[in-house]
């Protein structure tokens, strides 16, 4: 599947048909499933877009679907659409990680706004993910010394202090820094500091 898609999960055939027609006419790509199980059975991690799901369905409910997605580490943004607009279910859905909550019947403008927003969130998440992987790859190219310099720079130390800390001359620090910046493709010190702190934040965890 190419491009962002709106995955519609609803047990009501008329709603599936009407929503997919409207979504496609609004320039988005719909794909419908009559149950949560059907969707989960064919889901592919490459899929981009968002999920629009009903809450009340036989067997697996919308909340169950959200839970299943979270358990599988699927980050697809979920928009919940329900005919039961009560506070308790709304709260449960949002707590469960839904990015938005719509009440049936929903008018086209609101629906499309929410869906586009969700797709945007997905794209942003995807982009951020990609960038993080990119950064990690670049960080992987650094030598241990260059890494040390990066860490100390991120801590906000001056060249002289770094040199003292590492027991080398400030001149050598300059050299390491220049090489490191080239490998990380950074132009400004601010960028170096950002990546440095990011690298630190990620270090305790396994790198993807």
């Amino acid at each position: 599947m190419t491009g962002p898609t709106v995955f519609v999960v609803d047990d009501d055939a008329s709603i599936r048909d009407a929503l997919s027609l409207l979504i496609s006419l609004k320039g988005l790509q719909p794909c419908v499933y009559s149950s949560a199980e059907d969707f989960l059975a064919v889901y592919d991690a490459q899929w981009r877009g968002c999920l629009l799901t009903d809450l009340q369905m036989p067997h697996m409910s919308g909340l169950d679907l959200q839970t299943a997605l979270r358990e599988r580490g699927i980050q697809l943004p979920v928009v919940v659409l329900t005919a039961h607009g009560d506070v308790a279910t709304t709260r449960a859905a949002l707590k469960n990680g839904a990015v938005d909550f719509l009440e049936k019947p929903v008018d086209d403008d609101v629906l499309i706004d929410v869906l586009k927003n969700a797709i945007g969130i997905d794209a942003e998440r995807h982009r951020a993910n990609k960038q993080r992987i990119e950064t990690m790859t670049r960080l992987g190219r650094l030598t241990p010394r260059e890494h040390d310099v990066l860490d100390l720079l991120a801590e906000g130390l001056q060249h002289r202090e770094i040199a003292e800390r590492l027991g080398i001359s400030p001149r050598t620090v300059e050299v390491y820094k220049a090489r490191m910046m080239e490998k990380l493709q950074c132009r400004t010190l601010a960028e170096v500091v950002r990546i440095g702190s990011e690298a630190r934040a990620h270090r305790p965890r396994a790198v993807e």
Binding site: D12, A18, L19, P105, V106
Partner: peptide
């Protein structure tokens, strides 16, 4: 009322979407 709302909101949802689609068409 709650049950009625739920049951009727399903076809109304389809209806609104169809009409909006028809509007576009």
């Amino acid at each position: 009322a709650s049950a009625l709302t739920h049951e009727l909101n399903q076809p109304i949802t389809a209806l609104v979407s169809y009409v909006r689609a028809a509007q576009i068409l």
